[in-house]
Structure formats: structure tokens, C-alpha cells
Computed example of a mutant assay.
Amino acid sequence: MLSAASHRLVVHSSGAIRYLMNVPGKAGDDLLLVSTEAYMLLDGQDLTPRWTFGTTQVLRKPVLGYYKPDTPAVLVENGTGPNRQVLLLDLGSGAVLWSQALPGLPGDPPSASLPTADHRSAFFFWGVHEPTDSNQTEPGAAGRRLYMLHPTLPGVLLELDNVSVPIVAFQVVLLEPGRHAACILLTGPASPSPPGLVSVT
């Protein structure tokens, strides 16, 4: 509720507050409130809740993008480890536009998005491919995998990379709008390992 005396919003939310983000709304910016157990979109004018999406565990900052042309969406990660899900939510309604069960590992790089020429976004996120070989039992033995999703083909996940060494930094960049993009990956010894070779790809 909105306190008339202090003009502050009192939100009854389960879990600790992780992030507060300005996001595009119908009449200016709205606020996306992210707790460990829910996402809540607040109207930017009067701070009333517009929708709430319950989750089991949120540790990552959401990523903004466009699933439909010029229609904002948000990429969220729900859960951790083998129970992790990657979802795209319609920012206007909170409806699930796309979801995929994708196990993750501690220390996975953050997800990202880039605008595309068709006024949508390409979404990038990391996960662990579940092996079909019963002899491969160690989690992450096959390495972290970088996937890309483009909303025009929601049934296709493109695997861009498979990394079995520690990842120091990861960034997606737009080199030329509408034409060229790149994924920059810095790998090397993980702290507190001894110094070693560092690679940029």
C-alpha cells in the first residue's frame, strides 16, 4: 500500500529483496521488484502492483529484452542447480512466454540480451547439458554451455560454446547495429588457484 504521509510504498513480499529495476511501462517507467521468492511489477505512477509471479528461489538479476516486436519481456532464472528453469515473462502481464528446464552450476556467468533488426532480442544464458551417458555422473563434467534463444524460433536453442575451464568474465556486445554481434569470453585460473594462462575468445 502507499503511505499518504510519507509517500512510501509498503509491499508485503515474501523473501528478501534482491533487485529493484526501472522497466519500460505504458506511461513511463514501471518498477520491477525482485525478491528471493517472487517478481512483482509496480505501476510507475501510483506504485500499485500490476502482477506477481511466484518463484522458488531467485539469485540472478533479470535481463530485459523483447520477445515480440517492441513488446518488453524479462528473462528470469527460477531455482538453482538441477532444478533451475529459465523463463521469459511478458513484462505487461507477467504471463510466461517461454520456459526451459536448464540445470546450472554455481558461478555461471550472468545471462544477457541483444537487440535484433526485427525489433526483438536474442537472449543468451548458460547451462549444463544433462548427459545421457550413465557413466558420466560428475555434475558439470561436460562443461558449461552457452545457449542463444531467438523468439522467431522458440523451439530451438542454439549452443554457441562449451567451456570446461573456469570463466572469469563474459559479455555480449553489438559491434554494428542490426548486423554484427560478438560473445567475449575470458577464461583462466579461478581464485585462489595459482597464476596461469588467460584466454580471450
Rank of each mutant, 00 (worst) to 15 (best):
residue 5 A to L: 14
residue 5 A to F: 02
residue 6 S to N: 04
residue 7 H to L: 15
residue 8 R to L: 11
residue 9 L to G: 01
residue 12 H to R: 15
residue 14 S to E: 14
residue 14 S to T: 10
residue 15 G to K: 12
residue 15 G to D: 09
residue 16 A to S: 12
residue 16 A to I: 07
residue 17 I to V: 15
residue 18 R to T: 06
residue 19 Y to I: 05
residue 19 Y to L: 08
residue 24 P to Q: 02
residue 28 G to D: 04
residue 28 G to L: 09
residue 29 D to A: 14
residue 29 D to E: 14
residue 32 L to G: 03
residue 33 L to R: 01
residue 34 V to Q: 00
residue 34 V to R: 00
residue 35 S to Q: 05
residue 36 T to W: 04
residue 37 E to H: 10
residue 38 A to V: 01
residue 38 A to Q: 14
residue 41 L to A: 02
residue 43 D to S: 11
residue 44 G to F: 07
residue 44 G to S: 05
residue 46 D to Y: 10
residue 47 L to E: 07
residue 48 T to K: 13
residue 51 W to V: 10
residue 52 T to M: 12
residue 53 F to S: 11
residue 53 F to V: 11
residue 54 G to I: 08
residue 56 T to N: 15
residue 57 Q to V: 04
residue 63 V to E: 10
residue 65 G to E: 03
residue 66 Y to G: 03
residue 77 E to P: 00
residue 77 E to K: 02
residue 77 E to I: 10
residue 77 E to V: 14
residue 78 N to P: 01
residue 79 G to V: 06
residue 84 R to L: 08
residue 84 R to S: 13
residue 89 L to N: 08
residue 91 L to T: 06
residue 91 L to K: 00
residue 92 G to A: 14
residue 93 S to L: 10
residue 94 G to L: 01
residue 94 G to K: 04
residue 95 A to E: 10
residue 96 V to R: 11
residue 96 V to E: 13
residue 97 L to R: 03
residue 99 S to R: 15
residue 100 Q to A: 08
residue 102 L to W: 00
residue 103 P to D: 11
residue 103 P to Q: 15
residue 105 L to H: 06
residue 107 G to W: 03
residue 107 G to I: 06
residue 108 D to L: 12
residue 108 D to C: 07
residue 110 P to F: 05
residue 110 P to G: 01
residue 111 S to L: 03
residue 113 S to F: 01
residue 117 A to F: 05
residue 120 R to F: 11
residue 121 S to Y: 04
residue 121 S to Q: 07
residue 121 S to P: 04
residue 121 S to W: 03
residue 122 A to L: 03
residue 123 F to I: 02
residue 123 F to S: 08
residue 123 F to T: 04
residue 124 F to K: 01
residue 126 W to P: 00
residue 128 V to L: 13
residue 128 V to F: 01
residue 128 V to I: 14
residue 129 H to R: 15
residue 130 E to V: 12
residue 133 D to C: 13
residue 134 S to E: 10
residue 134 S to W: 07
residue 134 S to G: 07
residue 138 E to T: 06
residue 138 E to H: 04
residue 140 G to R: 12
residue 142 A to C: 11
residue 145 R to T: 03
residue 145 R to D: 05
residue 145 R to N: 05
residue 147 Y to C: 02
residue 148 M to P: 00
residue 150 H to I: 10
residue 150 H to E: 13
residue 151 P to G: 08
residue 151 P to Y: 03
residue 151 P to C: 15
residue 154 P to C: 09
residue 154 P to I: 09
residue 157 L to Y: 06
residue 160 L to R: 03
residue 161 D to T: 01
residue 163 V to C: 06
residue 163 V to D: 01
residue 164 S to T: 02
residue 165 V to M: 12
residue 165 V to D: 04
residue 166 P to C: 09
residue 166 P to Y: 05
residue 169 A to S: 15
residue 169 A to P: 02
residue 170 F to C: 09
residue 172 V to K: 10
residue 174 L to M: 12
residue 178 G to E: 02
residue 178 G to A: 13
residue 178 G to I: 01
residue 180 H to C: 10
residue 180 H to M: 09
residue 181 A to H: 01
residue 182 A to H: 07
residue 182 A to V: 14
residue 183 C to F: 04
residue 184 I to G: 03
residue 186 L to N: 02
residue 186 L to Q: 01
residue 187 T to A: 03
residue 187 T to S: 13
residue 188 G to T: 07
residue 189 P to C: 09
residue 190 A to Q: 12
residue 191 S to M: 08
residue 191 S to H: 11
residue 193 S to L: 13
residue 193 S to I: 06
residue 195 P to N: 14
residue 196 G to P: 02
residue 197 L to Q: 11
residue 199 S to K: 09
